[in-house]
């Protein structure tokens, strides 16, 4: 394990150099009687984009706070950038970038001044902060509003500014806690596009999300969390292959319940999930299954054939949906 790599992030991209940046063993976080994180193990390698997928309250944010060396673990061992957060917190944080779940910009200050202020926390020289801030505002497409108060910014712009801020120290590891929660679709796509660009530049990303599409788009590898525990780990596609079928047929019937219909189609699918508003049939070929449903004289109000997603993996593993 490299303990103090002063090497540049761009040297990372050889796929075999599995340099461990974060290693957690039996990590536990308790708040009083409540166990937010219940003994999890994971390892994050240099250059990859690693995700924590799970519903609200799964323990993702608590995990992020431990990885960002803000909140100490209650139990277990944690190594970040080869060092122990207990004794080297400030040293490690000097090389992390954090995009917190809640925006915490100085709304009274301009976009540029927000970056200047944050850069000073890292003790960077003013001229250097200024140079980086200019580049980062360009990168986050905020250059034209650099001198405008952050208070005037839309949700998406604020989030982009927060991302720019987190990059001011040129971090070895960028941690994003729910980076697109609360953003409209267009703003989300802009954030994803920028994150994707960082990822392709070799920046190591750690992302928590309860959006399965975000996880699928951005993460090379992820863990699925539920109630403080990791229930699955792997690449998004591998997880889908392992825990779900190729396609899903979604059927909506009237409001009079799906129960009897579920029984009537059970033999057509590998597995049938009954949700409050629809039936999910896990099948290899959705169109074929739909034809069979029609052949049985069942007339759903609507039918949709789609590919399996991480949402289906989560449903399979926990019996619940990600977003309620």
């Amino acid at each position: 394990m490299v303990t103090d790599p002063p090497c540049s992030v761009a040297q990372v991209l050889t796929p075999d150099s599995r340099v461990s940046l974060v290693a957690a063993r039996g990590l536990v976080k308790r708040f009083g009687d409540f166990t937010a994180v219940d003994g999890i193990d994971f390892e994050i390698y240099r250059g990859e984009s690693f995700g924590f997928l799970g519903p609200n309250g799964a323990g993702k944010t608590s995990t992020m706070k431990m990885v960002s060396c803000i909140s100490p673990p209650t139990e277990g061992s944690l190594t970040v950038l080869g060092q122990d957060p207990k004794t080297k917190g400030p040293q490690i944080r000097a090389r992390l970038g954090l995009v917190p779940q809640e925006d915490s910009l100085e709304l009274e200050l301009s976009a540029m001044d927000n970056l200047m202020m944050y850069g000073r926390y890292f003790d960077l020289p003013r001229a250097e902060i200024k140079r980086r801030a200019t580049e980062l505002l360009e990168f986050t497409q905020l250059s034209e509003r650099a001198n405008e108060k952050a208070d005037n910014f839309s949700g998406g712009m604020k989030r982009r500014l927060t991302i720019a801020r987190s990059l001011i120290s040129d971090p070895d590891l960028l941690i994003l806690d729910e980076p697109t929660t609360g953003l409209d679709p267009q703003a989300r796509h802009l954030v994803w596009e920028r994150l994707y660009r960082l990822k392709s530049e070799g920046v190591t990303l750690v992302i928590t999300t309860h959006y399965m599409d975000e996880a699928e788009q951005l993460c090379d590898r992820l863990v699925v969390m539920d109630r403080g525990k990791i229930v699955a780990e792997g690449a998004p596609q591998a997880l889908i292959q392992q825990h779900s079928t190729r396609e899903v047929l979604e059927l909506r019937f009237g409001m009079d319940g799906h129960g009897p219909r579920a029984a009537a189609v059970a033999d057509l699918a590998d597995r049938v999930e009954e949700l409050p508003d629809r039936l999910l049939l896990y099948v290899g070929d959705g169109d074929e299954a739909l034809a069979a449903v029609h052949a049985r004289g069942l007339a759903p109000l609507s039918a949709l054939v789609r590919r399996s997603t991480l949402e289906d993996v989560f449903l399979r593993l926990t019996g619940r949906t990600l977003v309620d």
Binding site: P6, A10, R95, E135, F139, D170
Partner: peptide
């Protein structure tokens, strides 16, 4: 242009964050 800039941000590290005196 943007990606070149990021490359610069990511590769050139003339100044590292320091802990310095009295944070």
């Amino acid at each position: 242009t943007a990606s070149t800039e990021v490359t610069q941000v990511a590769t050139t590290r003339p100044v590292q964050p320091t802990l310095g005196w009295a944070p």
